[in-house]
Design a protein around this nucleic acid. Structure first.
Lengths: 142, 142
DNA sequence: ATCTAGATTATAATAATTCTAAACTATTGA
DNA sequence: TCAATAGTTTAGAATTATTATAATCTAGAT
């Protein structure tokens, strides 16, 4: 279990004032073995269930966006009615199960490096993300 | 200029009743040299400006979704507050300009085929999409 | 021409997200 | 230490995209 103190330092390093709410959110998001994906709604639920804490929805939005801007969280490019975020900020790809709407991380062995041959003058590549959509194989393939 | 009649046939082939609204929407969407990307809002504007026609918002949604289900339109997996659609239904990838929020099509020469080594039992791959995010190269890189 | 399933429509409802403005608090520096 | 203040949090309202509803309409079959 990482001490709160670390998050206080981390937040300060990011230029974010280490408020009670932000530290709590860090604990919920980053005090884990594994990285994971979540929606704002998931996160609010986690905060109230795991931490028995209530943080205003507006603050959760603000903080998630602040973390994202600082590169502490990553938004996932899936078209959906809601936004998905990822605590794994490294460059990696995803499988998306269209049946269950589950998002599955790939590691570097799952997909070979993508070779981009196009170049847009004056622009640099910020990220390359592959999304592999999968669905049930058998029966009446829709 | 493709005759309406063709869209009537096309719609029938897709199992969609060729109503006035659907034919009009086909004209706006597919009577073009080039494929393009749009949001529902863009499309409503195009219909009213280019065709001087008014189609109910609900119908535009219904029809776009019907076209999508039939594979006549493709939804693009960009996380955004609104949904983007593409009249180019072939498998292709995108560049996304984070400065201008413009979406640029890739053709098959721009990105080498992606080699997926992961396999999920019982699931088949429906699509593989690469999204390359680019932004201004020079100055204060954010 | 009539019937009917499927479409269209205006409008209401829903859901995610952003805005607002008042209350609060971490930090600074006197 | 303590007040000033800039940055935060908050509840609730506002906004925006999308979906649901239910009445009306119409394409296609009989």
């Amino acid at each position: 279990m990482v001490k709160n103190c670390n998050f206080v330092e981390k937040l300060r390093d990011l230029g974010l004032r280490p408020t009670k709410q932000r530290v709590k959110m860090c604990e919920v998001l980053f005090n884990r073995e594994k990285t994971f994906h979540f929606t704002i709604n998931d996160l609010v639920k986690m905060i109230s269930e795991e931490m028995n804490e209530k943080i205003s929805l507006a603050t959760v939005y603000n903080t998630v966006h602040a973390f994202q801007k600082k590169g502490y969280l990553k938004e996932i490019s899936i078209n959906s009615d809601k936004s998905y975020f990822d605590t794994n900020t490294s460059v990696h790809h995803h499988f998306y199960d269209e049946d269950t709407h589950q998002l599955i991380d790939c590691d570097e062995n799952d997909i070979d490096p993508v070779n981009i041959k196009k170049n847009i003058t004056g622009k640099k590549i910020n990220s390359v993300e592959v999304l592999v959509k999968v669905a049930s194989d058998n029966q009446t393939q829709k």
